[in-house]
Design a binder for these strands. Structure first.
Length: 277
DNA sequence: AATGCGATCAACCGCGAATAC
DNA sequence: GGTATTCGCGGTTGATCGCAT
């Protein structure tokens, strides 16, 4: 047996809302509220609409203090930063932008912001703005390292946009050190205070684009799905760490960052790096 | 002026989560 | 504890608009 439909599709109107319908819905919600039941609302309000349609119309268009269009540079940066850390959690991203709806942010990202980034016209995740969000690590940093914020600590860092062809040489075996016992993954959750928490999920798998974007590398199609970047800037792929030499070749200012952990000459293993730095 | 096409964005759909019974 | 109902979310669709040809 399939899922019961939320309304009688044959008897509800679909498509764009008329000004009269908008006025009816607005008047009803302002006078009586939703009553905690969107499904029953259209009948009470005298609308031939599905309850879900009413809810969407109210939340995305009619409710007070909604802003449409004209995203600012600051808002761009917030969206990029949070997307790099959370992925397509549009409702959470929108909650950091007063007056913006998840639908608006999603549309803006899909139609404009993504293209801006691909064209290299927008920088991603500086350390300063990364620290503006209430992101905390929820678990033991040794066994369950956090992913975001995954940027080095120096204030002098400028985000880089690297093409895949620039990045790939960093990720070849010639530049990697093997640590076969360690693989990490993470998940992102919200706590009761609506703070973003990251934690290990045990899978050892990350979305490569997401973390690389968080590191300032821009969007690309990287054929890698297992890596970890620690809070101090050590960049790992699968169970290996990228060498300082490799990083110097394609991302000099990041390699020059004094807080970047160059583990190769020191012969450190991953847990030591995480413990010490 | 007519047509084609890409960009935009409002709206819909289906699913999982949360809640009610 | 199980089932039904509702909510909220993210992915997708399709109508509309503006621009190029």
């Amino acid at each position: 047996m399939g899922r019961a439909p939320c309304c009688d599709k044959a008897n509800v109107k679909r498509g764009p809302w008329s000004p009269e319908e908008d006025a009816t819905l607005k008047r009803y919600v302002e006078n009586y509220g939703t009553g905690g039941n969107w499904i029953a609302l259209p009948q009470k309000a005298g609308l031939r609409r599905c309850g879900k349609s009413c809810r969407l119309r109210w939340l995305n268009y009619l409710r007070p203090d909604i802003k449409h269009g004209n995203f600012t540079a600051d808002e761009d940066q917030v969206i990029c930063t949070l997307y790099s850390q959370l992925g397509s959690r549009w409702s959470i991203i929108a909650s950091h932008l007063p007056g913006r709806t998840d639908n608006d942010v999603k549309n803006y990202w899909n139609t404009k912001l993504k293209k801006k980034l691909l064209a290299g016209k927008l920088s991603l995740l500086t350390r300063n703005n990364a620290n503006n969000f209430p992101i905390t690590s929820s678990s033991n940093p040794i066994t369950e390292p956090s992913v975001p914020p995954c940027v080095p600590k120096s204030e002098a860092y400028d985000p880089h946009q690297l093409s895949s062809s620039q990045l790939m040489p960093m990720l070849t075996d010639n530049h990697l050190m093997p640590y076969p016992d360690h693989q990490f993954g993470s998940s992102v959750t919200l706590d009761a205070g609506n703070n973003i928490n990251t934690s290990n999920n045990g899978s050892g798998v990350e979305d490569a684009d997401q973390v690389l974007m968080g590191f300032g590398f821009g969007i690309g199609n990287y054929p890698y799905d297992q890596y970890y970047i620690n809070d101090n800037g050590a960049l790992w792929y699968q169970d290996k760490a990228i060498s300082h030499d490799a990083l110097s070749n394609c991302c000099p200012s990041l390699a020059a960052d004094s807080s970047y952990v160059d583990i190769k000459p020191q012969g450190l293993d991953q847990s030591t790096v995480i413990n010490q730095y």
